[in-house]
Design a binder for these strands. Structure first.
Length: 499
RNA sequence: CGGGGAGUAGCGCAGCUUGGUAGCGCGCCUGCUUCGGGAGCAGGAGGUCGCAGGUUCAAAUCCUGUCUCUCCGACCA
């Protein structure tokens, strides 16, 4: 995707298109990246902070995050998890205890070396994730099999010094939740890992209207220190993949490193089996990139801070009457829905239409003298642009039904998009014909050399080895060879460019 | 971290080549008229030219450094 030079904009200016183009965002099809950065700023989702890679999450975006939080929190609680909070700073000696783990994170850890005006005896790491400090504490808390399982989640911020950052998708500091559990048996820990992946899948599908491919990460893409990493890969509007949540089976790697031992029923001292799982504010980026369009954001009703906006068409003498009517509507709908009445005097209805569309409000009610006279309101859907008259009688029910329909329609559209850009391939070069846009399902021999070749030649990675029930466009073809080296293949894999 | 592009009013930009009083559009403020897809007229406010050094009588403009954004790669949620 290339940027447009001065000549391009000069031409647009002369043609008179520039006025509109300046107010709108860059069309999505024209330059997806530019579109994305335009949208996150113009919809007041974020602003850049003074330090590289840090952003301010503005109230509108934070509200969406809160909906994600409460959804996940409910799911976690329903499966017996509790929230707790562990410290931000981790002593160097703790962070370095699990060999693979340190190696994976060392390059992106920020260190605190001074405090109270003095050099610290031991540098403190700003947590990039909390397995280590959690492990240290769990070792103290766990003595007996009767103490298991430990099912704790924490909502926190973490810092990873990234080289290239993008709003929400990859910021130096980000908000997330990280669950950390300890189990008596391997089977139980594995079940936990899968259960939490399902929780994320539920959030994505039911609340965020985002379909995803569930799978296992290849060894090269695995979380540092994990035995197995499960992932949900969603497809963005431009066909690239986004890892939206991960769930790790950590085996006994951390319990051995941190001495998380328990005396089992049989009198033997055993190491616990641990898991960790997380989802971050990156999901906000995914939400934007999956559903957004040329007019801006499109929010699924379940996470829309404002589900319904009422725009009065209040002109001349009828002004007060219309506003009064709108206030009444607001009263009527507010108990059931998140409704906002746009009473701003300084903007015309047309301006407000565009403004709320940019912010992704799912439904707009237009109320003018004509509607009042006919006992109706005009209802405009953000997802389809469709505008219809709806009877004032039973409006709350009608509106609720339309919101449900929008929620479903957004999921259906996203699913259709993912399916349309999912291809079965025999050889990785076939991706070129599709401009490398989409999920390419092919066989893989399991050799990292093939993954490297894919990376070098195509800038694509192995997103995951899909779980058995996933929507493979061609289903498993036994006996096929690796899409890269054409030796006998052991796995089915999804290849894609990723964020 | 490598390679491109860019930082001038809230937003989008011109001015820089050839140093000499900082501009335009939108937005903002006030007033009036408006209001069914980004309203009109009149008046007005707003800028340490990212930051720090240097050259010069004089720097937005030339030189050096630095910070930040952005795109394409490499590394990760």
């Amino acid at each position: 995707m290339k940027r447009f030079g001065k000549r391009f904009w000069l031409r647009r200016r002369r043609s008179g298109l520039v006025e509109k183009a300046l107010k709108e965002v860059t069309p999505r099809s024209e330059d997806f990246s530019k579109w994305y950065t335009d949208v996150v700023r113009k919809a007041d989702l974020m602003d850049y902070a003074p330090v590289k890679g840090f952003i301010v999450i503005r109230p509108y975006a934070y509200r969406i995050w809160e909906f994600i939080q409460s959804d996940l929190d409910a799911r976690f609680r329903a499966t017996g998890h509790q929230n707790a909070y562990f410290p931000l700073l981790i002593p160097e000696s703790l962070l370095t205890r699990e060999a693979e783990h340190v190696q994976g994170f060392s390059a992106e850890v920020a260190w605190v070396t001074r405090g109270g005006g003095e050099e610290l005896a031991e540098p403190l790491a700003v947590r990039p994730t909390s397995e280590t400090i959690v492990g240290e504490m769990y070792a103290r808390w766990i003595q007996s099999y009767r103490d298991l399982p430990v099912l704790i989640n924490q909502w926190s911020n973490v810092v990873r010094w990234e080289k290239a950052t993008r709003p929400f998708l990859r910021t130096t500091e980000f908000l997330w939740q990280e669950g950390h559990t300890v189990h008596r048996t391997q089977a139980e820990a594995r079940a936990e890992t899968e259960q939490q992946l399902e929780a994320y899948r539920g959030l994505l599908k039911e609340t965020l209207a985002i379909p995803a491919v569930a799978g296992v990460k290849s060894a090269g893409e695995r979380f540092a220190g994990a035995v197995e990493t499960y992932t949900l890969e969603a497809m963005m509007g431009d066909g690239r993949a986004l890892q939206t949540a991960t769930s790790h089976f950590l085996g006994q790697n951390f319990s051995r490193a941190f001495n998380i031992q328990f005396l089992d029923e049989d009198g033997e001292l055993k190491y616990g089996w641990t898991t960790s799982w997380g989802a971050s504010t990156r999901m906000l980026g995914g939400l934007i990139m999956v559903h957004g369009d040329n007019r801006g954001l499109r929010l699924p009703p379940r996470v829309a801070p404002i589900q319904v906006v009422i725009v009065p068409i209040a002109k001349g003498r009828e002004r007060e009457a219309v506003l009064a009517h709108c206030r009444q509507l607001l009263q009527q709908l507010s108990p059931h829905l998140r409704v906002h009445l746009d009473q701003r005097d300084e903007f015309t209805p047309g301006y407000k239409f565009n403004d709320w569309e940019m912010r992704g409000v799912p439904l707009r009610l237009e109320v003018g003298p004509r509607d009042i006279a006919q006992s109706q309101v005009m209802v405009a859907r953000r997802d389809s642009g469709e505008k219809v008259a709806v009877k004032a009688d039973g409006l709350a029910a009608s509106v609720a039904a339309i919101l449900e329909a929008i929620q479903d329609a957004l999921y259906a559209q996203a699913l259709e998009h993912m399916q349309a850009l999912s291809f079965a391939i025999d050889d990785y070069h076939e991706a070129v014909a599709k401009d490398r846009r989409g999920f390419f399902w092919g066989n893989w021999c399991g050799d990292e050399a093939c993954a490297d070749r894919l990376q070098e030649e195509m800038s694509m990675t192995i997103r995951c080895l899909p779980l058995p029930n996933q929507p493979d466009p061609q289903h498993l073809r036994s006996g096929a060879d690796c899409a890269v080296c054409h030796r006998p293949a052991e796995h089915r894999a999804v290849f894609a460019r990723a964020y």
